[in-house]
Write a protein that binds this DNA or RNA. Structure first.
Ligand code: FES
Ligand code: FES
Lengths: 143, 143
DNA sequence: TTAAAATAAGACAAAATTGTCCTGATATAA
DNA sequence: TTATATCAGGACAATTTTGTCTTATTTTAA
């Protein structure tokens, strides 16, 4: 469903949200990649993308790190689109140039509503909700 | 969402269903790859997988080709699982070894219902439904 | 001022996915 | 029997995605 980069991005964002709720300190790459069990250098690349998309703010130098740009009020849809673009949620599921009512692919009408619901769920899930689940030990960053 | 192979597989199956509804003749790779606009040799590979999964029956030699194994009563979920396996519909969305209630990833509870609905839609959509749409010029194999 | 701790960025490498080509096997019609 | 049209399958190639390494830059504390 999601690319590996997108999977990591979601974990990154939720982990930072969770950390900031506890201490409000910046979080560095090393702590992130350990917490979510991801390759460090690759994680750093994804962090750069999240900064470019304005979902994160980075601070260089000693005691630097990453923090949320809009404290907690960022949803999963924003994260997914920042990393994987609009293909998953707006593009044609069978690879047509564009998803359209005028030239629908063979699954268009059948899967339209399911994708709408997925989109709604993604939009309705912000970092606050997930950070809460993590605090309640009802969701985890790694196995 | 789906792999390229899976995208082609869906088009392949729906095209064969559509052709058989019209003429009940076997369909060959060349006709398929032209109709769905896919690379011929790659399409042949996917056809072999669909035969191995018992969704299609192949006939070698002159006037050979492919036909549905269970006339029309094959659904999208079967096709997707034949090609992409159980990862998309049953695996963890964030790459954990398994999707589980006991060790849920950070999106597990949030996206569970959306995925259930997707699964239902896929199971409820069989080739008959799509072939009908195609006949009514309400769905297409290529742009 | 210097050392240390952090991000930024580009080049490179490995792995997975997608796609091609060639040869062999099989069935049918003439 | 032979030519032809078809699927089967393996080796290979190209592309994309994932992941690594190295060096530069920035910031702060001592
Ligand atoms: S999903 Fe294919 S055209 Fe809309
Ligand atoms: S989707 Fe990740 S554990 Fe269920």
């Amino acid at each position: 469903m999601f690319s590996k980069r997108c999977e990591y991005a979601i974990k990154i964002m939720t982990f930072i949200a969770h950390q900031q709720k506890k201490s409000n300190k910046k979080v560095d790459v090393d702590a992130i990649s350990k917490a979510i069990d991801s390759p460090k250098a690759f994680t750093a690349k994804i962090l750069q993308d999240l900064v470019k998309s304005d979902l994160l703010v980075s601070t260089r130098g000693r005691f630097g790190g990453f923090s949320l740009s809009a404290q907690i009020d960022i949803n999963l849809k924003q994260i997914i689109e920042a990393i994987d673009g609009h293909k998953l949620l707006e593009g044609c599921l069978l690879g047509f140039g564009a998803c359209s009512e005028k030239n629908p692919c063979v699954v268009h009408h059948q899967l339209k509503s399911a994708r709408e619901i997925l989109k709604l769920k993604l939009r309705d899930t912000n970092l606050e909700i997930i950070a809460k689940r993590v605090n309640e030990k009802n969701a985890y960053f790694k196995e």
